[in-house]
Design a protein around this nucleic acid. Structure first.
Lengths: 133, 133
DNA sequence: AGAGTGCTTTACGTTAACGTCAGTGTAACG
DNA sequence: CGTTACACTGACGTTAACGTAAAGCACTCT
């Protein structure tokens, strides 16, 4: 067991902690979502990186694209106490929420339609079964 | 206005009727979802093509991939009266329905979570507003 | 010293469903 | 016969979020 200075984690430790692949972490770094320090060539992820990764993964669950997430993260980075930016993020989230609810409405419709088709199909299958006797 | 023999339609008529692009129809033909006749090099879509296209578009609304749709269509093509194939299609639809309902459940969760975050954000913004006075 | 492990970079591959040229043809109108 | 309007066939481009080699350091164990 090698000890990392308290709040620094290797790529593997990050992968285990967050259940992601190394490729993903490097990808996020390339996309400027994370900014790990270096020990020579090796990445060392800070507490800040972990906080950001937590937000990234949460954002993904909400269906935000990585680009959306990057922008939101950057807003807070530039000025964590700026009201306008907090409000902007809030608005983005609201928009996304509206999208998600629209999406659910469509999905509900499709489900209802498909169920109707299935009922018809079931009836047809029953008919076929009777005819087969 | 040019008259097409009763049940034959040009690519443009199809596009207008179904609200798709020519590229889409050619793509579906390449994927063996449609089989328009030819008048020289030009495509002429039959009643059968229209029936298939209707099913294709419906299938898409249900979230089936084009490959799924092609298989289903082919099943019916080979033998429209085969019970086993009707039942197979029915099962595919049921599986898809289960997926869609699972997807909706996840979506509902994400919506609930995001709403919770929004409520917190709203509170924070209210705080910021008070502090700004 | 050799073997093994883990990390690194670089860069091409994947998937779906088309979009978007580029270049050519052809049919009809005036 | 020239122009306009469509249609046709390739074939490469697009988007997102990584996956998957390939090839090479750096360290450690033995």
């Amino acid at each position: 067991m090698k000890m990392m200075p308290n709040d620094l984690m290797t790529i593997r430790q990050m992968c285990d902690a967050f259940d992601v692949t190394p490729r993903t972490l490097r990808f996020y770094e390339a996309k400027e979502l994370l900014f790990p320090q270096r020990d020579g060539t090796r990445r060392l992820f800070t507490r800040r990186d972990r906080a950001r990764l937590t937000l990234i993964l949460r954002g993904k669950r909400f269906g935000f694209s990585l680009e959306d997430i990057r922008q939101i993260l950057d807003l807070y980075d530039r000025d964590g106490s700026n009201h306008a930016q907090t409000i902007r993020t809030y608005e983005l989230a609201q928009q996304r929420l509206a999208q998600m609810e629209a999406q659910r409405a469509e999905l509900d419709l499709a489900i209802a339609d498909l169920k109707a088709e299935l009922d018809a199909g079931e009836a047809m299958i029953a008919t076929l079964r009777r005819a087969a006797e």
